[in-house]
Design a protein around this nucleic acid. Structure first.
Lengths: 332, 332
DNA sequence: GCGTACATTGGAATCGATTACAGAAATCGT
DNA sequence: ACGATTTCTGTAATCGATTCCAATGTACGC
């Protein structure tokens, strides 16, 4: 069922069918009607690949993710898809790219199949790979670090969010605040850690390096980190995890060790995943509108598709403190 | 950067470049080396649209979803993507299709862009739309009802899962068991309701129609349903919600009305979303391996791409009972 | 030394659309 | 009524790849 079949059946040339389909000018009403009728009867719809070959547009956005696991990523996809859908675009998803080579391969395999790409690679090193990217292919970097001025980027206000939460804990009287950090080379993780340091410094609290434990954003690593912290000679009175998953792991470890939250230990996380408010006690955290993050990224990409010679933008998505019971509630 | 550029730079014809790229036979080692070197230097990668136009394959799977919201759908996407990725396929996602027309439009817009489609439309009516689908385009129906023998389908063992859970409640001594149903025309919902009815009938318990309350799978509707049930003259002693979200809504309504769970009222859900085990009390539910559902759907589609004239398969994904505190624990 | 077989390469058709260009038909003004 | 303009339609080039077929060049057997 190609355009030729329709043309033959309607007794016109393929050019005319194409004109009818694209609602181009100068087709007589009679012809238009006849062609439309035949096309409908035959159930014709144009071949995407052929069309995008000649028009040089695909109406598809590529999305490269490190992994699809967890609510965080799925919320992002939802946001991206929502915006894309609203603008008549599809999204082509490719996940599980951690190494430079995998990203490279995925990038190449999408040539001629998408009009632009949203790349989420929290790994700091990936940026360098992208430098070598061919010419001016539209790319939006999501949470990839804001320093890359040669791309459109969007990031979370990691530093400020972490700073605020730390300041809140300090305001509640805590002085020994532990931090469970994320993966070493992860952009979000390093920024959040930096925010924590900033807050301590601002408040004139000396940093005890033994209170910083490395995690990997997984629930399990949060659990492990707490065991390490409880073994310290001088325990912390509060724990700030660099994401909610680790905070949740921390809560379960504390329960196992009969440490009461928030009485004996305050706990806070980062991201505000849906689970957070269902925890027992409900988890204080730094709220991020994750699906909005995806939406904005898509919007950024779409607008750079519309006018080529835009200069690159660097967006930051703001965060808000969500204080629940796990850190003892609001400052009175 | 097309194949022509590479050909010119390497001093060969486009045919030869194509042969080198596709590792076809009969290219002299010397030429192969030279072409490969030039292609790498120029950063060439073939144009997807052009390639799939002539080869008539896209290495992409289309995924049509009613909406991307909620953990259920995102887990499915994860499963599909995982399987697709492993087989060198991308996935082209399109969501928010409820009406017949939207599905139709999405279907057409994917022609020539995907090799096959996974369609999830719990709405029972959609099947009829698909009947009209052009010829033998590979399609897998996900949770769309298993009666459609002209398609590959995969569904959850809804009836059996609901039956088992209801039997469990009966075994715990409950006789007045309420059911919060899902949307009227939703396939999963009707099957789960049917399973509930089966279990009651098997156990010789007469069905009280006033105990069946209609919901729409949302947390809010679960909340509302409970208010209705608590107003009954003869209250139920157990509530079985057709999905976890409604069960969670039910739990919060019960707490508001100071009805103790499980002492005064047993509660059970369906799906086993990650939230379920974090509820207070943890929610008993029927476990479904959601991402596996997506994986199996993708596998089904991929295998039907590999050999055309397979007959259609109807798969059912089994469920298991997960008994937690919300229904009073296991039968002793 | 010569015909045959085989390895290697290039020319050209092809996939299914869009669109520039040109030709035919209809309409208009005077 | 006739040339100019406008409206409509068809032919053919084009996008960037793959692949059949033909045309080389080389090696081999006898």
């Amino acid at each position: 069922m190609t355009i030729k079949d329709v043309a033959r059946a309607a007794g016109v040339s393929v050019a005319t069918v194409s004109r009818v389909w694209n609602e181009a000018a100068f087709v007589s009403p009679e012809t238009r009607r006849r062609v439309a009728e035949v096309a409908a009867r035959l159930g014709y719809s144009p071949h995407g690949a052929a069309r995008s070959l000649i028009t040089r547009t695909t109406y598809a956005l590529g999305v490269l993710l490190p992994d699809l696991y967890g609510e965080f990523f799925s919320e992002i996809i939802r946001g991206i898809d929502h915006m894309a859908q609203a603008n008549g675009y599809h999204i082509l998803v490719s996940s599980s790219h951690d190494s430079k080579d995998e990203i490279d391969a995925a990038l190449r395999s999408m040539r001629g199949r998408v009009d632009g790409m949203i790349i989420m690679s929290p790994d700091l090193e990936t940026r360098r790979t992208l430098h070598a990217l061919q010419g001016n292919f539209p790319v939006v970097l999501l949470n990839g670090g804001a320093e890359a001025k040669e791309f459109d980027t969007i990031t979370i206000e990691n530093h400020e969010g972490a700073r605020q939460m730390t300041l809140h804990l300090i305001a509640r009287g805590h002085r020994r605040i532990a931090m469970i950090g994320g993966p070493q080379r992860n952009y979000d993780a390093t920024e959040r850690l930096r925010g924590y340091r900033t807050a301590l410094a601002e408040s004139g609290i000396e940093l005890d390096e033994s209170l910083i434990v490395q995690g990997d954003f997984s629930e399990l690593s949060g659990h492990g980190a707490v065991k390490q912290l409880l073994g310290l000679e001088r325990r912390p009175t509060a724990i700030f995890a660099a994401n909610d998953s680790m905070a949740i792991g921390a809560l379960s470890a504390l329960r196992e060790n009969h440490v009461r939250v928030p009485d004996d230990m305050a706990v806070a996380g980062f991201d505000d995943i849906p689970l957070a408010r269902y925890m027992n006690p409900p988890l204080s955290t730094v709220h991020v509108d994750i699906s909005q993050l995806g939406e904005r990224a898509a919007a950024l990409l779409l607008s750079s598709l519309q006018n080529d010679n835009r200069s690159h933008e660097q967006l930051q998505l703001s965060t808000t403190l969500v204080i629940r019971a796990s850190c003892g509630g609001v400052v009175s």
